[in-house]
Design a protein around this nucleic acid. Sequence first.
DNA 1: TCAACTTCCACCTTTGAAGCGC
DNA 2: AGCGCTTCAAAGGTGGAAGTTG
Length: 419
Amino acid sequence: MYHPRELYPSLGTSYRLGHPQPGADTSFPPALAEGYRYPDLDTPKLDCFLSGIEAAPHTLAAPPPLPLLPSALGPEAAPPPPEALHSLPGVSLSLENQELWKEFSAVGTEMIITKAGRRMFPACRVSVTGLDQEARYLFLLDVVPVDGARYRWQGQRWEPSGKAEPRLPDRVYIHPDSPATGAHWMRQPVSFHRVKLTNSTLDPHGHLILHSMHKYQPRIHLVRAAQLCSQHWGGVASFRFPETTFISVTAYQNPRITQLKIAANPFAKGFRENGRNCTVLGYKEHDDTPGGPCDSTLCGDIRESNPEQAPAPPEAAPAPVPPCSGPSAEAYLLHPAAFHGAPNHPLARNPSFPEASDSGRPAPYSAAFLELQPGPGGSAYQAAPSAAPFAPHFIQGGPFPLPYPGPGGYLDMGSKPMY
DNA sequence: TCAACTTCCACCTTTGAAGCGC
DNA sequence: AGCGCTTCAAAGGTGGAAGTTG
């Protein structure tokens, strides 16, 4: 897992990525904001694993000041425009299922977190424009605390009820299509529906770890790079959308949220009126249904049953949908050993399988971390000395932070939990 | 005592394999 | 043999209920 902060070395420490400026959120006492200041937040984590990386071809512009985050969940929060940290000129991101998010946000979005990991609903689904058709990009998602408070449901609303728990290890979800060309990403919306949230601090699956009863916000990062370990990073863009703020819970507190989830999530159909235990209907099922095992942006996100909500197809005829099987970043992350010739592993790296290049066909099958080399004994995976930004940190503390990172591909940033 | 958490459950969707007919 | 369709089982996602924990 990588904290996106570490993706932007040239920004130094001047940019407090993902966290409000002091005083930005007035919904909780200053004392809470103070308590939220994590000691490692201003430490340039990149230094520990970015040595040797070449400067990005684009000079990263000084980031603009971050807009203020909404002060609280609920209808009173006037959402500022999506903020973006930009060093990718012309690139813009829009939240595809914004209306659904707004419905939840108006009530106060809650996300269930479990030990085994629970998907987000609604999921983040975005469409991107302005990418270089031929260049390759990585799509990343992480979830960051919005403020320094712990929250409590008071029957009618969420209210701060103390300081936030110490920050947990930062993890980032890598979209399994990464890296892929700009044409691939722009062909249709990019969905992060397979992201899972957990409250297990020892989670072995690589899910994003959150504290219960805390307020979080997803962020989406776009990185121009040929590979996850590319030494040439051509810029980054970071986005977040105010309406995607949510409070993590182990059980729904607000019954209106329960109703919305049941109404909008097809997996909860069993709880609807005609199901075993549903009390409310009236919500139209949204086209935010989770997809199947295929994580590609090219399948699983847009339901044919509701084509009206699918974005208009680009003028150019879309390329044939690539198969979702076969080698992929996800496959690598699930079975890294297979890509490194570890013995007795069912998956062997296919020599006919091309590595990602910086041009040509989108490569949902490109294997990430190809620079990682089997370590002593063949069980550990270490980075080649020249390899790239991720690798050295990635292996910190063991063969892999996650022996078999979970579906979709997560990276463990290994930020110090404060215990 | 109680809020928060965990576990289990029934119900649902999705997917892919198997079977069948043309 | 190849193709398309249907059926079915398995996997996995869902919120609710009840039990557990601190």
